[in-house]
Design a protein around this nucleic acid. Structure first.
Lengths: 128, 128
DNA sequence: ACCAGTCTCCTACGTTTGTAGTAGATATCA
DNA sequence: TGATATCTACTACAAACGTAGGAGACTGGT
């Protein structure tokens, strides 16, 4: 149970916490675009479930409202998402990148930036 | 309903069809690694549901067994998966690539290959 | 001290997913 | 042509997800 798989709605809730920091249910609910914003209790239910999954935790109480904060980092969640995706591509990232390129989502600049990043990281690696 | 979101198990079934072509339920089931292979009827149920979702269709009958084939391409499914992932990253692919690089999944070779692909595609683009 | 507003906690319910059993139809082989 | 294996079609059910209502507790203002 190291890291639960999060659904779209759950991720939206986590996103509110990652973006605005510790929040009440009301604040999380209001982070949804007013068009298609779930009912207060809907958000509350999901918040409770995320808490049960240890993805978030209550940190304090303001007035009569509980304040929640993320217990898993956005980074870890992102890694999980990407790993899940990769597993479908046989673990090889290259096809994913190829897709991004082919659909025009990944530009030459993006790729060159990635290349710089690799060089920088590999330099650091050497010094380890 | 253009393209249903497929779950992990559903994707594994689609994968069998994409890889081995039109298959019977039995053949799909046997494409699963013998370790944790779902029961025949489990696969059958999922196959029926995929059929209801128009992701696959029956093409013929051999003996008393129906033969199914994918009705959506692997490519389309992959695009869908990637698009869903991207939507979580605000639609920007760069953070995804950065993640791949940081976790060491994307090598310098991969990136350079992507770069070549971009150049080739952009050349084709010009001639359009 | 009371009332309106807000929040919590509990309950509920429909849908989707994963899992599988059973009954009856069908095919195949001796 | 009858026994055996295999399939289909149907049914079932638990867990997860999305959605939300209602009862009662708490709080802040007057």
């Amino acid at each position: 149970m190291a890291f639960p798989r999060l659904t779209k709605l759950e991720l939206q809730i986590m996103d509110a916490l990652w973006s605005q920091g510790a929040s009440s249910v009301r604040e999380i609910q209001e982070a949804f675009p007013e068009k298609d914003r779930p009912a207060y209790t809907t958000v509350q239910t999901m918040v409770y479930r995320l808490e049960a999954k240890k993805a978030i935790r209550r940190v304090k109480k303001i007035g009569n409202a509980h304040i929640f904060e993320a217990a898993v980092s956005r980074n870890a969640a992102q890694r999980r998402l990407i790993d899940d995706l990769l597993s479908f591509f046989g673990g090889r990232p290259q096809p994913v990148v190829a897709h991004l390129v082919e659909t025009g989502k990944l530009t030459l600049d993006d790729v060159q930036e990635a290349e710089q990043l690799i060089r920088k990281l590999s330099k650091k690696e050497k010094g380890r």
